[in-house]
């Protein structure tokens, strides 16, 4: 008989699934059922059969420390094009962690059944953010994906950042607030209707830029918020993930 060295072990529980607007959102809890804490857990690959992943657009996705019996959750989104309702597809998540002064890999798998399409319980703004990454420079472009005629005009972009940075790009008609460490908040500076610098439905705006001494990227959260031009009040929001200067890379 011999004793095994304490080590993390990863598993999953049944995920939450939402098939809406041609996309499948999977809320997947990841558990450490092992006998040692896992530090610096990072997801490096997420796939669902042959489905195209919409979010997170870039990896790695840092999950931090996963203690023994601890749980972290990821919420990837996939296009449902080519998938059949009721079909079973293999969801695979791979990544790395640190334990016993060693960086190791993990891979967890789960077959999931594609549910029938349904209405999302929460209505989100239809928008997305693209990023162009050059060494030490991250440049963001915001897209308002609302249908033409929508009253939702984008007026705010908030970005979570994992390491010190400076803002080097602010679009004309916008202003920025930042602590240069953890967040940057760009806001359209229009004070009165017709708010000419808001991003209209179907439109896009680039030039949101930051620089950092960190070369590597990792996925962090962002929020895009709209102003309802018809009601002249705060509108819908769209939270998601995008690459920014990495904390650990």
């Amino acid at each position: 008989m011999f004793l095994l060295a304490p080590a993390p072990r990863f598993s999953t529980v049944a995920p939450g699934l939402l098939n809406s607007d041609g996309q499948l959102t999977v809320s997947l809890p990841i558990l450490n059922i092992g006998t040692a804490d896992a530090a610096n857990v990072r997801v490096t690959k997420i796939s669902l059969g042959s489905a195209v992943r919409r979010s997170p657009a870039g990896l790695p996705l840092p999950l931090g420390i996963l203690p023994v019996n601890g749980t972290a959750s990821i919420s990837p989104r996939f296009n449902t094009t080519g998938l059949l309702v009721g079909g079973k597809y293999l969801l695979s998540v791979q990544g790395t962690y640190e334990a016993n002064n060693l960086t190791s890999g993990f891979a967890i798998n789960r077959y999931i059944v594609l549910p029938a399409p349904s209405q999302s319980p929460v209505v989100y703004l239809k928008a997305h953010v693209d990023v162009a990454v050059q060494p030490g420079i991250w440049t963001y472009t915001i897209f308002n994906d609302e249908p033409v005629g929508s009253t939702q005009f984008i007026a705010l972009f908030s970005l979570e950042v994992g390491s010190p940075f400076t803002v080097t790009g602010v679009p004309v008609g916008w202003e920025v607030e930042t602590d240069n460490v953890s967040y940057a908040l760009w806001v359209a500076s229009d004070q009165q209707s017709p708010y000419p610098h808001h991003i209209p439905p179907g439109g896009s705006l680039g030039g949101f830029q930051i620089q950092s001494s960190k070369i590597g990227s990792e996925s962090t959260g962002y929020l895009v918020a709209a102003w309802n031009h018809q009601l002249d009040q705060a509108g819908l929001v769209s939270p998601d993930l995008v690459l920014s200067p990495g904390k650990s890379v």
């Binding site: 190791s104 890999g105 993990f106 798998n109």
Partner: peptide, 17 residues
């Protein structure tokens, strides 16, 4: 049935169920 893996060298090994 789902296979879960850990403790491998991520720079060397890629595992697919």
């Amino acid at each position: 049935l789902f296979l879960n893996f850990s403790g491998f060298d991520p720079a060397v090994v890629t595992i697919e169920q």
